[in-house]
């Protein structure tokens, strides 16, 4: 089995309803379900917005995409969204091909992603 994608909370200047995490590793058929569980476990009741720093993610296959879409659905149910930062060339390629670039907010850097979330939403 591919090593589990490591999920690390990131401290960033964000409001309490925003969760920022970095994902490191390769997301594929063998470890995608595990990541969904880890994301769900990391989310607190207060979190409506999720920011994923993908600068350390080397690979994502169609199963990984399915999991990211289920995470997106989870956040939509909370009236929020998922913002992704710093995709490498390979991730950008598969995201574009599969139409995911329109399903998520993509940012060139984590700072840009945090700014986009801050501009979009205000705490309840």
């Amino acid at each position: 089995m591919t090593a589990a994608v490591v999920l690390t909370p990131v401290s960033a200047p964000v409001a309490d309803h925003v969760l920022v995490v970095a994902l490191d590793g390769a997301l594929d058929y063998t470890n995608a379900e595990r990541l969904r569980q880890d994301v769900e476990a990391a989310l607190g009741e207060e979190h409506r917005e999720l920011v994923l720093d993908l600068s350390g993610m080397d690979f994502c296959d169609s199963t990984g995409i399915r999991i990211l879409l289920s995470v997106r659905k989870l956040m939509q149910e909370r009236d929020g969204a998922v913002t992704m930062a710093s995709l490498n060339a390979r991730l950008t390629r598969i995201f574009k091909l599969t139409g995911l670039t329109s399903a998520f907010t993509l940012a060139a850097s984590l700072a840009e992603a945090v700014a986009a979330v801050g501009a979009r939403s205000t705490p309840r």
């Binding site: 089995m1 090593a3 063998t30």
Partner: peptide, 8 residues
């Protein structure tokens, strides 16, 4: 096998 990382 399920070691897809090694295969890649």
């Amino acid at each position: 096998t399920d070691d897809l990382a090694a295969l890649r």
